[in-house]
Design a protein around this nucleic acid. Sequence first.
DNA 1: CTGTATCCCCCGCGATACTG
DNA 2: CAGTATCGCGGGGGATACAG
Lengths: 125, 125
Amino acid sequence: MAKSYAGSPDAADLSRADSLAREVFSDIANKWALLIIETIGEDTLRFSALRDGVEGISHKMLTQNLRMLERNGLIVRTVHPVVPPRVEYTLTEAGRALRVTIDGMCTWTRQYLAHIESARRRFDS
Amino acid sequence: MAKSYAGSPDAADLSRADSLAREVFSDIANKWALLIIETIGEDTLRFSALRDGVEGISHKMLTQNLRMLERNGLIVRTVHPVVPPRVEYTLTEAGRALRVTIDGMCTWTRQYLAHIESARRRFDS
DNA sequence: CTGTATCCCCCGCGATACTG
DNA sequence: CAGTATCGCGGGGGATACAG
């Protein structure tokens, strides 16, 4: 195994970057994470608003994914020290950049809906 | 609830389209499906090649996702009647279109890797 | 080689209850 | 209102075996 030469990225660095990239990809490539990002969009949404906005998500899944997205620097969580608590979520610049590609997926879905529907009919017979 | 007027799309049609869209989105918005599409790319790959190419996927998950993708018209499965069997998978036009957006996600991941890494360090402390 | 089927375990996830 | 913790179950998914 090749050793690191200080100051020059080598195979070890690259593979570490790769494994991180795969990890991140696995994190965000799940429907709840993508739907949350898509739902926040350009807005600033409260926990309860997200709960209502993301169809079918449970309390637990929402918190869980919000933490994950915050950890990866895709959203920022601001707590207003009032009672009752008011917590708001917005996308970071990274989050907004990712959202653009998610928009692409959504557009794709709409665009190919008829194609998909007929493909399914063909397959199911 | 509004009734259909023949020949004009109405609320019922739209909500049916919406539910189909959500269903499709839930199907494809999972890491294995996306990785499979990304791996096939412009190529024509055999089952075993995909098994090797998609890091960490199990036999079962691979077949399962391949069927799902075929059903949704994203890939085409061609069986060569030889022994031993030779089955090849390629993207359809719809699949290639979706792949473009997945590429976007991959690019995003690489682009923001440093940002993510530092966000994680901050969060984990 | 590819695909289906069976078993079985683990953990994802929903439900619920409790704090601040 | 937002978040954490706990429990319990259901099914996702791995391992394995077998068929074509």
